[in-house]
């Protein structure tokens, strides 16, 4: 694995969150932000990505099937460029995500994190935790029956 800088790691984290987050919540939170002046570098576009797996989970890669993805790139008035690749076919979500990616590279980063990314992450984590807790409740506790033969 190549080393990545903390900046790249942080950007990876928010782009990944934006790709997976709930679109409705994202738009609600985005409403509270004044939309910055921007131009469209790449209008929202729907496409497919071939998802791959590995034979036996560890061997050679193979094609599992595609998933839908929407991408978008925007440029703010100050020249900052934002990109987004989000799961599904929601063009508005892709555009909002690209704007957030751009703003996260500006002086507004702290405000955007607090207003948008943190609540999104909390919702995402809570949903994950609930599922994990439900799974944990279905874990089998074995007990051994007393056997008669000895």
């Amino acid at each position: 694995m190549e080393e990545i800088s903390p900046d790249v790691a942080a950007r990876k984290a928010w782009l990944g969150l934006l790709a997976k987050c709930d679109a409705e919540q994202l738009q609600e939170l985005w409403c509270s932000v004044d939309e910055p002046e921007h131009s469209m570098l790449r209008a929202p576009e729907i496409g497919g990505v071939m998802v791959r797996g590995r034979a036996g989970a560890v061997g050679a890669a193979f094609n599992l099937g595609e998933m839908t993805v929407t991408r978008c790139s925007v440029k703010l008035a100050d020249g900052t460029i934002g990109h987004a690749y989000v799961q599904g076919r929601d063009k508005a979500k892709a555009q909002t995500a690209a704007m957030i990616d751009a703003l996260m590279q500006t002086g507004q980063a702290a405000a955007i994190r607090a207003q948008i990314l943190t609540p999104l992450q909390q919702t995402y984590d809570a949903a994950k935790a609930t599922r994990a807790a439900r799974a944990a409740a279905t874990k089998v506790d074995f007990f051994t029956m007393v056997r008669g033969e000895d």
Binding site: G47, R52, R54, A57, Y85
Partner: peptide, 23 residues
């Protein structure tokens, strides 16, 4: 429908070791 989609690329092989298991 799938055939109408432009292909953006291929993913890294998914890491099932890190699966959040429901089962």
């Amino acid at each position: 429908y799938r055939t109408t989609l432009p292909r953006f690329g291929g993913s890294h092989p998914v890491n099932t070791d890190e699966m959040a298991c429901d089962r």
